[in-house]
């Protein structure tokens, strides 16, 4: 086998890898957008009736249907919808009568802020716990952490949230349990107190999960021949763990964290409800419950983008941590 010398093989390959990934993502999203449109067309919703109300005359509804172009064939409507969507015209909510895009942007910012706050708790805590447990396999720190993480996974998030509210808000009066922003733009400096309890609630579920993944990964790596060689070579344990074991042990948990980002941004419906935090999850849940078609379409597109992007990010990080992938 001939290995060609290259000035910067890693960088170039990496760029190509990312571009190829992005291409796949775009195609995935395009296909999914067609699926969404077909599905939303099948839903038994009469837009003109939702906009004009039950009191409207059939003539008025027919006129509006015509005006909205809803009686055109499906492919034509899809092209019109997707091109408007890409240009930032996401339509008007049937239920609220306001523009969808600014509302989604606002809620998305809120959710992203909360997700970042949660991630800032989840990543260090869960990795640390997982590493400690993995290095102390079957000894008491491992037992405590393993059982603790099992418990944290099994408790539903609203129970965690309620306990936190009763403890920190009602009992100690340290933090607010009502995280309503009341129309303000979210601002970490100003609103961090309102974000703490919902962020911890979201963290509890994930910390247990990720700590367990980290633990298993750490145990596997510490058991591998090259680590045993390093230890037998007489390297100090510190060096073995920090310089040799950690990088490989983190591949799996980091990939898991990244794929969970989509859930942290868009999936915290219960937590948003409980703390009355205006995130994007509850906006989408309402849209689905009340047949608010433009909002449903926007939410499905956002959800897909989130999943696809976080999956792509996971791939990239995975590739960075594990060079074998890049040339695969």
């Amino acid at each position: 086998m001939v290995v060609t010398a290259h000035s910067n093989p890693t960088g170039n390959n990496m760029l190509r890898f990312i571009l190829r990934r992005l291409g796949t993502l775009l195609i995935t999203m395009l296909v999914l957008s067609i699926l969404i449109f077909i599905l939303s067309d099948v839903m038994p919703i009469e837009p003109a009736l939702m906009i004009l109300g039950r009191e409207s005359t059939p003539e008025a509804r027919a006129a509006l249907t015509e005006q909205l172009g809803l009686n055109k064939p499906l492919p034509e409507r899809y092209v019109a919808w997707i091109s408007r969507f890409i240009q930032g015209d996401w339509g008007e909510s049937y239920r609220m009568g306001v523009e969808v895009l600014p509302l989604v942007q606002r809620r998305f910012t809120n959710s992203l802020t909360l997700a970042m706050m949660a991630a800032a708790i989840i990543v260090p805590v869960s990795l640390l716990l997982g590493i400690i447990a993995g290095l102390n396999e079957s000894r008491w720190p491992d037992r405590v952490i393993s059982i603790g993480s099992l418990i944290s996974i099994s408790i539903p998030d609203f129970v965690v949230g309620l306990v936190l509210i009763v403890l920190f808000s009602w009992g100690l009066r340290l933090l607010p349990g009502d995280s309503s922003l009341r129309g303000d733009t979210v601002n970490l400096m100003e609103h961090w107190q309102k974000l703490v309890l919902p962020a911890i609630t979201a963290s509890v579920v994930l910390i247990g999960y990720i700590a367990r993944v980290t633990r298993v990964s750490m145990i596997e790596v510490m058991d591998s021949p090259y680590i045993r060689t390093a230890i037998l070579k007489g390297l100090p344990q510190r060096t073995v763990i920090l310089r040799h074991a950690l990088r490989n042990a983190l591949i799996a948990p980091v990939a898991v964290v990244t794929t969970q980002l989509a859930w942290l941004v868009g999936g915290l419906i219960v937590i948003e409800r409980l703390f009355n935090y205006p995130g994007i999850g509850s906006l989408f849940a309402d849209a689905a419950l009340r047949n608010d078609l433009p909002m449903i379409q926007a939410s499905a597109m956002i959800a897909i983008t989130l999943v696809v992007l976080s999956q792509g990010l996971a791939d990239v990080i995975y590739a960075l941590l594990n060079p074998r992938i890049r040339f695969g």
Binding site: S93, M96, S180, R182, G183, D286
Partner: peptide, 8 residues
């Protein structure tokens, strides 16, 4: 004086 849908 202010209206944010579904919030306040």
């Amino acid at each position: 004086t202010d209206f944010v849908p579904d919030e306040r």
